[in-house]
Amino acid sequence: MADTTHTSENTVARPRKSIKWGTVFDHTVLILGSLFMLVPILMVLQTVTTPDLETIKNGPGLTIGTELDDNFAKAMFQASGFSGENTGTSMLINSLILGVGFAVGKIVIGMMAAYAIVYFRLRFATFAFWLIFTTLLLPLEVRILPSYEIVQQLGMLNTYSGLIIPLVASATATFFFRQFFRSVPNELVEAARIDGAGPVKFFIDILVPLSQTMIAAMFIIMFVYGWNQYLWPTMITTDEDMYTLVRGIKQITQDLEGTNVPEYGRANMLALIAILPPVLIVIFFQSWFVKGLTESDK
């Protein structure tokens, strides 16, 4: 019987330490993919530091210019429209109001509705469920004109409520919270009832704290979604002081066409300001965001 001191006639062969070509190939593909994603934004970053005349003459190059401050000032404080009210600052504020308002509205309304559907014995719960979930079937884009007409009839054109509330009329958040609440163990509600907690107390003391991660994930997804809205703001806001950054981007693009000295620096700076807040949120809260996104489909 062999034991631990057994010696073999095999001389110790070193494990091979060759370059793993497969791994090199994997990295090459990933680097090319990352570049595909990155190059456009690098061009934007270069343009915002470069004088417009330079860009017009040579196009985007590899040098970093000194015009960052100037372009930033132009973008934030100079207006392009007729009324002079769609400065970068006012568009940024409108974008923030839309993003936050949309996210908060969605989450609050969605949580309330999901709580009612999951935790109460309600005769018309199934009916309410279907009423709400049918909205998942039709995106705003296909009912855009009638929606516009109705908002117009209600006198909500060029208002924040007209901008935000119709967008809230789909059940994505409700669906998400319903899924999550259903995964919360039943014993919890039983224990809470034995401890004498009513429905309101249970919601505030137990369910909301339990949902913290979910709320954060939803907030990120919904904020990005709201901030990036384009078609609806384009139709509903005609006053320039109501423009969001994303809604303003078409005007910015068009402005570049008509003039002799297009303000590429300013235009790209506005695009950059429109990109940065949602992108930074997605990058910094990546794990929540990915979790929220991939779990919402289950």
Partner: peptide, 25 residues
């Protein structure tokens, strides 16, 4: 099967298996 001073060190430096030798007929 024959193991001759088989050792495992993970990239983080943890030695999961110290040099181990044995023989299975």
């Amino acid at each position: 099967v024959h193991l001759e001073t088989i050792r495992k060190i993970y990239p983080n430096g943890f030695e999961a298996v110290t040099p181990t030798s044995f023989d299975i007929p």
